[in-house]
Design a protein around this nucleic acid. Sequence first.
RNA 1: GCGUUCGUAGCUCAAUGGAUAGAGCAUCUGACUUCGGAUCAGAGGGUUGGGGGUUCGAGUCCCUCCGAGCGCGCCA
Length: 580
Amino acid sequence: MTSTSAAAIIAARIEAAVARLHPGETGGLDTVARPSEHADAQVNVALALAKRLGKNPREVAEQIARSVEVVGVCRSVEVAGPGFLNITFDDAFLGEKLREMASGESLGLRQAAVTETVVVDYSAPNVAKEMHVGHLRSTIIGDALVRMLTAVGHRVVRENHIGDWGTPFGMLIEHLVDLGEAGASRELSVGDLDAFYKEARKKFDASEQFQDRARKRVVALQAGDADTLRLWNLLVAESARYFAQVYEKLDVLLKHSDLRGESTYNHLLAAVVERLRAAGLLQQDDEAEVVFPPGFTNRENQPLPLIIRKKDGGYNYATSDLACVIDRVENIGATLLVYVVGAPQAQHLAMVESVAASAGWLKPPARMEHVAFGSVLGSDRKMLRSRSGDAVKLVELLDEAVQRAEASIREKNPELDPAVRSVVAHQIGIGAVKYSDLSNDRVKDYVFDWERMLSFDGNTAPYLQYAHARICSIFRKAGEKRSAVRDVRPLVAHQAERALALSLLQFDTVVHDAIDRFSPHRLCTYLYELSSRYTAFYEHCPVLKADGDVRQSRLALCDLTARVLEHGLGMLGIGAPEQM
RNA sequence: GCGUUCGUAGCUCAAUGGAUAGAGCAUCUGACUUCGGAUCAGAGGGUUGGGGGUUCGAGUCCCUCCGAGCGCGCCA
């Protein structure tokens, strides 16, 4: 049922005109109709075309404007500036496009041209360690990407690559033994993982005897000693339960079944080594087995190796990352491997990608995509830390968000039913934290600021949620069912209606653009603009006070706006309450 | 040292190589017996870190310098 978008229609018409006027010149030309400040849309094709033809761009543009077939689509196509084509759509045409958009569940959102299996690797906390702000961005951005990719029809596989293996487990297990299993699981179940880890660390640093025990325990763990594995499992299980609580609080999709700890790949590591050896990529270097991907150098400008097997015979994370690639491509059948991992890992991932490609494990169309992100900063512009200088615990941060939201609602809408209030406070508080993260260009650092993210003004989640809640309020007052206005063709008459209509019709383009660039902030910016235009419409175009067709038309615009907001926020993992 | 990311209004941030670089906050002016004012309309505020280059056109691409963060072999 997907209908062709207004922008796509005009682009095709322009392209046809160009083909008529300049046969054989359409290849590689940009006929895309873009949003414009000076018209409903603008097409810039004449500038590049004129360059190619060696003609005056304004003349080329005017020829196109005269020739383009736009009856029933555009009110006008005008030339402006050096040769821009300014498009103004026909009101009825816009109304019809809105009606088409409203008539389906998808709101005009196209399915991906090629359906892919996408593995999204994100969150990745460590077993027996507290989740902290360091996990916030990966978890939130990863969750949004999963929802967005799913929305356009991809098969999305979530993978939470938790740190459940390695030398620290010697010390952690010994600490567990010291506490006794009952005592340890009590401590772990209250979620005080930080204290558990720190105590273990402290003992390890202070006592050679403890270090010795820890080392022996690591050997036993790697050797598959049954009792050691049982204790290890205890740690993993308690942590997994704890992670699940945090994810529920954060309202992200990650579930227990998405856990794929490093240990999952243990039995594949030897095969990685063998396959690299068979491919002739493996080299011996300072007693370690390594691969030298081309183009990577160290401080001394010497080739930089990816260490596959350490000189003590152990494997490290590069090896398990390679095993992951093999698993994802060969077993899961993924063609897109998304890594939602901090920017500092860029070189490591580039090396893994290079080696995987050289080994033939990552053949096009299969590819890796590092969705890198910057740090969360405090108001001092340094990495966000608690007052004591430790990493800020994620649960404490989330609890504070909900608490602040609740206080704010209590003050601004005291009549709201307390039971509703607590649900809404969660949606607003968590939504604010997520939105403040997602609305910034992910590759940059961003400043964490409670006041700003919870403000009802500006580009914030509460502002968008408020716009949505107001629309719901209108329908409650109207005594009209939302679904009753979905076959109405809205009248696009008032300037504010027109601005809103144009925004609504951009939904599909924006979502795909955000997905293509793995940039949720583009969707945020769009939703904010949509909300701003809606509130302007709300001020200038009375809905309930209007009569007949105008009232129906405006109700239809309200309903469609609310649906886009709800779906858009939904793809960001943010709830859209009906009242707040 | 090499690599990499970043530098845009007082502050926080936008801007597929396209017109006069846009928002919000803050500041100032207006609008209410409100379809939820938790709002709207408007104003002031910029050499896009500096300098070169490519281009019909550069915040965006290239080079260089300055500044900040991060990474640079057996942790993950």
